[in-house]
Simulated scan of single mutants.
Amino acid sequence: MEHNQVMPHMGHDLYLSYVGAETDIIFNKGIDLPGFASYLLLETDKGKEILRGYYSSLIELARKHGVGAILDSATWVANRDRGALISQSSQSLERLNIEAIDIIAQMRKQYADVSIILCAQVGPRGDGYAPKDLMTAQEAESYHNEQIETLSRTDADFICGSTICYPEEAIGIVRSAGRYGKAIAISFTVETDGCLPTGISLKDAILAVDEATDAAAIYFMVNCAHPDHFSRVLVDEPWLQRVKGLVANASRCSHAELDAAETLDDGDPVELGVQLADLRRKFPHISILGGCCGTDMRHMKNIAEQAQRAVS
């Protein structure tokens, strides 16, 4: 099966990605985000400035280290079911999805000297930690068509289905992106044993998605898990060449423990950077590193510094 090894517009061999803003906003800034929906920040000028601050910090970090930056939109839970839980209509979701891409497109224009890629985030239909009512691939495609069609009308370079828990939903997302002519990446999350929340191995999930979609995804990633949880399953086999990114949690806690946590576990920023850099050193084809839940710019700084040393 043929597939794109890297995105054709990637100008660097390392890109930084930061998708940990929600936990930082909630726990460190004391701002409520109902439904974990950072796109709600787009409703106020103050909220937009908060988002711009995260993007600016990431871009400045990338510039300092001579690497690229992937700007991930605040649209991870901006889908119909997750939006309905916080009283968002289909009309408001359409508007906010578009505005979320507009803000990162503006950031790219502002920092024209940095290699920046715009990623439209799509999340799972249900709970990213404890999936229920699993869909078939056909059902997942039908469900995600609504958000992906909206995102396909924006300046996003590609779409990433993140914190996906089972292959059928990933297959539906890949097929939906193909329907609307957008490049698509898939990022699975894993539990402490390195398997997806449904119990399937990362290897088998990736192979299943590729088999069902003729390897249409541009690459796969792992996000929302600590390196201790996934490093053991990253083995030097052909399927691993499809994994291009690792966007890690700061905490070693399980997803169930994180769900129940009332305080933020920000782990060890230096150690996290070392662990991700070690994996990049071991697997040089991995070109995207970053932070997910519990991380902030301290973690991103250490990730950038350690990753740079890994290839110097």
Rank of each mutant, 00 (worst) to 15 (best):
Val190Trp: 09
Asp193Tyr: 00
Gly194Arg: 00
Gly194Glu: 00
Thr198Lys: 01
Thr198Gly: 07
Gly199Leu: 13
Lys203Thr: 04
Asp204Ser: 14
Ala205Cys: 09
Ala205Glu: 07
Ala205Gly: 10
Leu207Phe: 00
Ala208Phe: 00
Val209Pro: 11
Asp210Arg: 10
Asp210Phe: 08
Glu211Ser: 12
Glu211Leu: 04
Ala212Trp: 01
Ala212Arg: 02
Thr213Pro: 09
Thr213Asn: 07
Asp214Met: 04
Tyr219Gln: 11
Phe220Met: 03
Met221Trp: 00
Met221Asn: 11
Val222Asn: 06
Val222Phe: 03
Cys224Arg: 00
Ala225Asn: 09
His226Thr: 06
His229Leu: 09
Arg232Gln: 13
Val233Glu: 05
Val233Arg: 08
Glu237Met: 06
Glu237Gln: 14
Trp239Cys: 05
Trp239Asn: 06
Gln241Tyr: 11
Arg242Phe: 01
Arg242Lys: 15
Arg242Cys: 04
Lys244Arg: 14
Ala248Asp: 06
Asn249Trp: 01
Asn249Met: 05
Ala250Lys: 03
Arg252Glu: 12
Cys253Thr: 02
Ser254Arg: 03
Ser254Gln: 03
Ser254Tyr: 05
His255Gln: 13
Glu257Asp: 15
Leu258Pro: 02
Asp259Ile: 13
Asp259Ala: 14
Asp259Tyr: 04
Ala260Asp: 14
Ala261Leu: 10
Ala261Gln: 07
Ala261Met: 11
Glu262Cys: 07
Glu262Ser: 13
Thr263Val: 15
Thr263Leu: 08
Thr263Asp: 09
Leu264Asp: 12
Leu264Ala: 15
Asp265Thr: 13
Asp266Ala: 13
Asp266Asn: 13
Gly267Val: 14
Gly267Arg: 11
Asp268Arg: 03
Pro269Gly: 14
Val270Ile: 15
Glu271His: 08
Gly273Asn: 04
Gln275Gly: 02
Gln275Glu: 09
Asp278Pro: 00
Leu279Pro: 04
Arg281Met: 04
Arg281Val: 00
Phe283Ser: 12
Ile286Trp: 06
Ser287Asp: 14
Ser287Glu: 14
Leu289Phe: 09
Gly290Ile: 06
Gly291Asn: 10
Cys292Glu: 01
Cys293Ala: 10
Thr295Tyr: 09
Thr295Glu: 12
Asp296Asn: 15
Asp296Ala: 12
Arg298Gln: 13
His299Glu: 05
His299Thr: 08
Met300Ser: 04
Met300Gln: 13
Lys301Ala: 15
Gln306Cys: 11
Ala307Gln: 09
Ala307Leu: 09
Ala307Met: 10
